[in-house]
Design a protein around this nucleic acid. Sequence first.
DNA 1: CGTGACGTTGAAGAAGGTCAACCAATGTGG
DNA 2: CCACATTGGTTGACCTTCTTCAACGTCACG
Lengths: 257, 257
Amino acid sequence: MSEASDTGPDLQIFVDRLCSRSVLTDEEKQAILDLPHRVAHIKTNRDFVKLGESTDHACFLLSGLIGRFGQNSEGERQITAIHIPGDMPNLYSVVQPESLSALQALSVATILRIPHQAIREVAARYPAVAEALWRDCAVDAAILSQWVVNVGRRDAKCRLAHLLCEMATRLEAVDDGKEAHFAFAATQAHLADATGLTTVHVNRTIKSLREAGLADVRAGRVDIFDWPGLMAAGDFDADYLQRDTEPEERLRIAPVP
Amino acid sequence: MSEASDTGPDLQIFVDRLCSRSVLTDEEKQAILDLPHRVAHIKTNRDFVKLGESTDHACFLLSGLIGRFGQNSEGERQITAIHIPGDMPNLYSVVQPESLSALQALSVATILRIPHQAIREVAARYPAVAEALWRDCAVDAAILSQWVVNVGRRDAKCRLAHLLCEMATRLEAVDDGKEAHFAFAATQAHLADATGLTTVHVNRTIKSLREAGLADVRAGRVDIFDWPGLMAAGDFDADYLQRDTEPEERLRIAPVP
DNA sequence: CGTGACGTTGAAGAAGGTCAACCAATGTGG
DNA sequence: CCACATTGGTTGACCTTCTTCAACGTCACG
């Protein structure tokens, strides 16, 4: 991992992301863009936030794939969220610095580290920013809820299909067509940790999706052959991702001055 | 379900709960106590917040047990959280009114309904209140993360033991002793929905906990015979519940005036 | 060209699900 | 006050899904 000071316009995608569900004024957007941050490059499979550790900064993912996970006493991992560029994998740490989940790079990744103190100051000054951050955590929790349903109440094939649907939707890899594909660096072992299965069974399950003509996962890439079919197999309904919040539905805690 | 207007000091336990992890001034506490609310009584097994429904108020649980759940396309439920008195089962709805989880009473329950608008006004006016609410959501998400680990990476006996440990800890039913007990109205079917098992297997698993001399669940009550043993069987570490936040560790987003 | 990470496959077994029957407690209407 | 239904809990027999263990293939890279 290397660190370097940087003041590029990197946070713009974070602002865009917040504004997809919240309403911010130009002043508020600028306050976020002005947040101090340092760039860091993370190697594949490196745990860069450890379980139980206290942090004084939050991470913003610029590129790559990050898994958030917990583990049982045998050290077996359970991935609870897969984060994509634009996400803040541990935004919650702003109000809860002791990290109850660990973060692992599933591929090489580039992150920005933003000091909690700076985020807290902006949130204290602009209630609408605090609200937008709180909302981002709420969406994260909604995805987490679905993850529980996925792991608890679906069989292997359905679980994996659901996960692929979720990633395809969040990565905006699907349009109206039947086919789609996207880069996805996670290994079968990562998928096993995410679905609560073994790598062996993930392998067989991928095979069955492939043979059913639904999708294939290989060489860091997911190919979807039959999007409606995959959604059906995965029992997938994209509503929970809250991607379709129309401008007039977006809430704002304080009036726009 | 019956509704009645009420202005008793019911919200005091909510304030106490927030202050166990956050720092609030007397003025801020009073603003929360002054929140308008209506009392409602809910019958057992009634879904009082439905999936996908939009709400304009958050619920505060005064008495009883509430399950938050999602479900798969077959209608099989997966409980993602069990809420106890003092919890706000859908606090997140303040920033995210479309409910992505449903709420079901697991016993007769008494709730207070608090309009979103009122909560939003207090949060906009007092950044520290917004922070405290945000933190409450973060703790809720931390519990949810553990729930994923529980369902994804532990076997039936371990899962159930973990759940009992979590409930015992949150209900403050355990002290330093070996034994403990607490009222717990959930049925075996509810436990099955919570653990992602079938009722039949929950029944057998309870039997095995009983025969191992660890704990028993029956007649709306949990008896713990061997607390250290149950914690070991459930792979349980209470840290994630954030119950031990010392006053000097509590964060505050804005200075105390 | 060896070594390690990742993927693939087969055989055997364990954990948990399914189906079905039955019991005990409680409530209800005649 | 009894006949009956309902809800929650218990148990057995059987079957499916997933795990475990072990071997082997393949590709990238030093």
